[in-house]
Design a protein around this nucleic acid. Structure first.
Lengths: 255, 255
DNA sequence: AACCATTGCGTAACTTGGACACAAAGTACG
DNA sequence: CGTACTTTGTGTCCAAGTTACGCAATGGTT
């Protein structure tokens, strides 16, 4: 894939799979807060989820990966589709027409960008510190936002974001989470803060440790995190093999 | 929606949302077996999932409902999207061209039916006895198949079916299942057989009863199922209010 | 050097889950 | 009509897991 960002709006009819887009809810974790990466649309006071279109012969998952790569600079990221948003009124052709005019791109009334779009929502978990946010040609900013302080979003992007969070919480119940969101080495309290912010509630320190260790996906290192205040906590890292296995098989089940 | 089934292939370019379809995995429960409703394609020795296209201004969920209604005669059914299948090679334009020729419909090489299709998979749970299977214009049969004996399916429909079953099993772990699949009144053993066939394993009768009753979504009636062999079991029905609530809030969680 | 928030490890009380026992109910068959 | 057999309703026991804490050790702070 070309690193150089091209102007999506200048593509011809027929370049992309028609009437279909992908939108990514990119989660990061910083300063004990869950954050999402958002784009500020040019000439409008709304923000948007990073999204894109699917090339005519491109895998849909691959398109989402491409979007992620372009906005964050990262590759090989945890990315999972969670819902398709297909209401007919979710598209706003007037808004899109305004965009085209603003960009001084000539267009016919049946321009592909003005059609109704169905969008597939993905959520991604990325390591905050490794991300280099990059706006696309239609946006003037690309920034992290605290989940508590997300600004007004265009179209139904707020709904998409909410549903992504719901899916993330659901994943927590039957699959491990953390790899890709935390640095390679991390402490138990850090992992706990992550779980707490995703769940939106506090957990008992000692019981958390017991439960997460029982999953048998962590390795304790002989190192401790030094320099910080108070007693130096041990560092852990995920055992990738077991982590992957837990992702596939699920952690518990209920039945 | 028009009850009368029209011939989909005779629609013009521009009738449907382009390059997009829905496919439904319709589960029923009969003779202690989980079954799926399949269509036999005309003039080909393969079966297919009931599917359809989305009208230009139609909600995607609504389109799936329409498909369900046309094939089963039922309305207001439990229906849930579970995965989008978007690989570029999943479409088989040659197969579709053959279909058009067979049906003696003239077509240009860029006919909408020959394009690449992205499909959204839904699964539905229906009450077997209330279904009246109806083939569509492209199929010569519409029948229930035992999950263990599903015949060869066209394209990636086998994958879609497998993924639907996976999603169904996952739902079992955190949401109740049974309403819509069973008759209004049912016995505990019947409910247990349902769980057992979905999970593909046997459960202890007594522990099952305790666990399912703990969910607090069932009401035991003063009636018993009479006429059958052996001791007459009590009849139960779902408390719809609590059932609905459990669907939304989830049953357990893990955290 | 005393202080104190935090970490590592442990334990008692309680809940949940799995394996199993037994009596009651209803059909089948001699 | 009574005995055998299968199935249902209810309950118990024990192991495993969960929850709610206690306490000493650590390492920077004052």
């Amino acid at each position: 894939m070309d690193q150089e960002q091209e102007d999506i709006l200048k593509y011809d009819q027929g370049t992309f799979h028609p009437g279909f887009s992908v939108d990514c809810v990119i989660f990061g974790f910083h300063a004990n807060q869950l954050r999402v990466l958002l784009l500020k649309m040019k000439g409008a006071d709304v923000w948007a989820l990073p999204g894109g279109f699917v090339f005519k012969d491109e895998d849909v998952e691959e398109a989402a990966n491409r979007v992620l790569q372009l906005r964050t600079g990262l590759d090989n990221i945890f990315l999972r589709q969670f819902h398709l948003f297909g209401k007919p009124d979710r598209s706003q052709p007037d808004f899109n027409a305004k965009l085209l005019r603003q960009r001084q791109i000539p267009f016919a009334p049946n321009h592909w960008f003005l059609q109704r779009f169905i969008t597939l929502g993905f959520y991604a978990l990325v390591e905050y510190s490794r991300v280099t946010p990059r706006p696309d040609t239609n946006s003037e900013a690309c920034e992290w936002w605290d989940l508590q302080q997300v600004p007004a979003l265009m179209q139904d992007h707020r709904q998409i974001l909410d549903k992504a969070l719901e899916a993330l919480r659901l994943q927590l119940a039957y699959q491990p989470i953390g790899y890709n969101l935390l640095a390679e080495k991390f402490t138990m309290p850090e992992l706990q803060r992550l779980y707490e912010t995703i769940l939106g509630k506090q957990l008992d320190r000692r019981n958390f440790q017991r439960k997460i260790l029982a999953y048998d996906i962590l390795e304790r290192l002989d190192e401790r995190r030094s320099g910080v205040a108070h007693k130096a906590p041990y560092l852990y890292r995920f055992n990738l093999e077991k982590y992957q296995q837990a992702l596939e098989q699920g952690l518990e089940g209920g039945w």
